[in-house]
Nucleic acid binder design. Structure first.
Length: 153
DNA sequence: GCCAACGTTGGC
DNA sequence: GCCAACGTTGGC
């Protein structure tokens, strides 16, 4: 079993939005980066857990936990010109992009802010904290997972 | 809104 | 295959 971190802009889709979905689950669509796609397609398995991270907002940080409940399948939003993440180069034969389904597990009482994450020495090698990192899906080591959970109290 | 750091595109 | 130009992400 692996651990992950999934970024989302809360204005577009927050952890509360996920919790309010039927069955508290939804597809994680809109990944349009090959590195992120490959990790999702090749390494993300049913039962894996992921931190839900709020990005591009007043207080960015980890807000809770979700579980992968369906492994990668075609991201049909790439084929729909009305969709925000429409990709003109995607075809039904080669949709290019994929998505997984995730289910809400828990929301932390308080956000673990990026600022706090940066101050934790155990997380100094974390991919999220590396300069210039923009991946919206990234692996989290077991040690990092544990350290962040400990911060959640 | 600014800007650094990437990723992608396309001409050559 | 190089690389300049452009687009995007995301913290601040």
């Amino acid at each position: 079993m692996k651990y992950w971190l999934l970024k989302s802009e809360p204005d577009a889709f927050s952890i509360d939005d996920l919790r309010n979905m039927p069955g508290k689950k939804d597809h994680w669509d809109g990944i349009r980066n090959y590195q992120a796609r490959n990790m999702m397609r090749d390494d993300m398995k049913k039962g894996d857990l992921a931190f839900f991270y709020h990005s591009s907002c007043a207080v960015p940080g980890v807000v809770g936990i979700v579980e992968v409940v369906k492994e990668a399948y075609d991201d049909y939003t790439a084929l729909d010109s009305k969709e925000k993440y429409f990709d003109a180069k995607a075809t039904p034969e080669n949709p290019r992009w994929c998505m997984v389904d995730v289910k809400y597990k828990k929301k932390f009482k308080q956000i673990i802010s990026l600022q706090e994450l940066k101050q934790n020495k155990k997380l100094k090698d974390m991919m999220l904290l590396r300069k210039g990192n923009r991946l919206s899906i990234m692996p989290v080591s077991a040690g990092e997972w544990k350290a962040i959970l400990a911060m959640a109290g």
